[in-house]
Design a protein around this nucleic acid. Sequence first.
DNA 1: CATGGCGATAACCAAAAGTGATCATGTCGG
DNA 2: CCGACATGATCACTTTTGGTTATCGCCATG
Lengths: 320, 320
Amino acid sequence: MDFRCLNSFAVLANQLHFGRAATLLHLSQPALSKQIRKLEEEIGAALFRRDSSGTTLTAAGAVLARDAGDLLARCQETLSRARRAGRGETGTIGIGFGIATYDLMPRVIARFRALYPGIQVSLRDMPSVEQVDALRARRLDIGFVRLPTPADMTVLPVASERLVLALPAAAADIAGIGDLRAMPLILLDRRRTQSVFDQVMALCAAFHVSPPIQQEVPEFSTALALVASGAGASLVPRSAKRDDLGIIYRDIDHAAAEWSVGAAWRTGECEPAVLNFLRCLETELSACPAGQRSHLRGPRGAAAPAGGAGPTLRYQLFSD
Amino acid sequence: MDFRCLNSFAVLANQLHFGRAATLLHLSQPALSKQIRKLEEEIGAALFRRDSSGTTLTAAGAVLARDAGDLLARCQETLSRARRAGRGETGTIGIGFGIATYDLMPRVIARFRALYPGIQVSLRDMPSVEQVDALRARRLDIGFVRLPTPADMTVLPVASERLVLALPAAAADIAGIGDLRAMPLILLDRRRTQSVFDQVMALCAAFHVSPPIQQEVPEFSTALALVASGAGASLVPRSAKRDDLGIIYRDIDHAAAEWSVGAAWRTGECEPAVLNFLRCLETELSACPAGQRSHLRGPRGAAAPAGGAGPTLRYQLFSD
DNA sequence: CATGGCGATAACCAAAAGTGATCATGTCGG
DNA sequence: CCGACATGATCACTTTTGGTTATCGCCATG
């Protein structure tokens, strides 16, 4: 059964006049006659009585007319629901975030929620590596992860700042990582932030030192408290610095001493809801003047278009 | 939106495999691809993700898949309801009956109700002339009326019997209508049985008498009671005769002294429910041996096919 | 590196649906 | 009573659609 025919039938059932109904349907009268005839054949009974005195519904026609409106309405409803979902106005979006949540992310999510109230935002706290797995398995759509990311993800760098060396007041003689020697390093929980751990290890190796890992803590503030207590040194992003603990900070003269976070998604993503979110993120980023963010220098040359994936996203935003 | 495409979509959404789904749908894989593509264009978004790793639903596809099954089911329901109505298995049938209800009619209706429990039978008691009007206005579908009927009705004679002259015991000298002279005639209520009244008048005119109308009564039994009391004569069908009142009955030697009843319907009727009823009536009539019914001699040459109206009804049943 | 599975694409063909012209019939006004 | 009009059916024809087979490109796998 064709919905077109059914609609024509409904109009004709209202008009009870082939000519008028055909005009309303932007159709010629023979075409409408044919459609109705087809429907009648499908049902196996006449739907209209074509008398000299006019066109009237038969009993079967009346039954169908009663149902047709409802059916057509449901059809439209189904269609428009699918369309809304297709425009990314309804649905669910899974967003992951790691330990380092910058203020940008909540702002973006608030903006997205306001713009697309029909999308259920599912926020999940998980380490970068897990996020990448979850993205691959479609348990997540967007991940706020530490950079760099594997090649099958496209990434939009969101923030980046230098790592600084935090030293107890008693260790003022240490000028940089190269001087750490036996000074224990207090780092974040390895299971949660494998990539930071690896990065720090690589950094130490670059300076030809391999300090012992003293403790793995859940947050930077805890690490700094331990540093203040003299338990060891730590590497923290510049923004985590606290001036009230008597800690000594040293800049690190090495390109890899960069703490970068980006939004990652499956390369080639085409779920409209996800694209909408990215658009949202993009505008939020451009609304936030670059000067207020840490300078961006993405490890993998910042966000490349990655095979022209997102059709409408302009990655050039970050060329400044 | 095409129902066909939607169904293909539903199957593909289950199978998640174009080739298999196409086989199930008895069409080739490119055809299915085309159908899905058409649907996707209509919705304005991809419904499936065609990865190297397989075919999966997009968010929009999942939304549509959830609704599609329901919509298709409703569509089938609507269709089959219309089909049932088209076969005359559901709906309403209006049946009229006059003062002369023969036992055949209840039997036919009982049979019809048993055979088509989905049809609501609306029985209405009304005089023949009103029945004919109601039939024309479609307020009635079948009328059990006195014959003859107007030309735009087709009729199936159901019963016919001779009228007899009923005389008070004191009027034994009257041999027939021609002798009535001033003897009052007790007839049925004219408003209810105009045609009988007219017939009797015509009969009197044929015998060159015009007896006064003494009383118009609601039923034959009342008329006979009045005859027995000596109030006048009456004309009643032979079956209405009562032997316990001392009434004298005289046969009437005239062709028009016939009391005929038939089922009438609009010539050219094509409502399946009505045709089903007529079929029912037909079988009931043939089940009842002709001998048990009064001999048929319909005033208008019995039931003529009347323009080949009822396609499957065999009017020849009454050719005996 | 050849192979096989899977969906897209191309070329082609048949069926369907649309169109304008015309017909048949019944109504109505003169 | 007759011609004009209205209405839906029918016809001949064109365009569109949907379907088929053959083939391609891609990727995973042995």
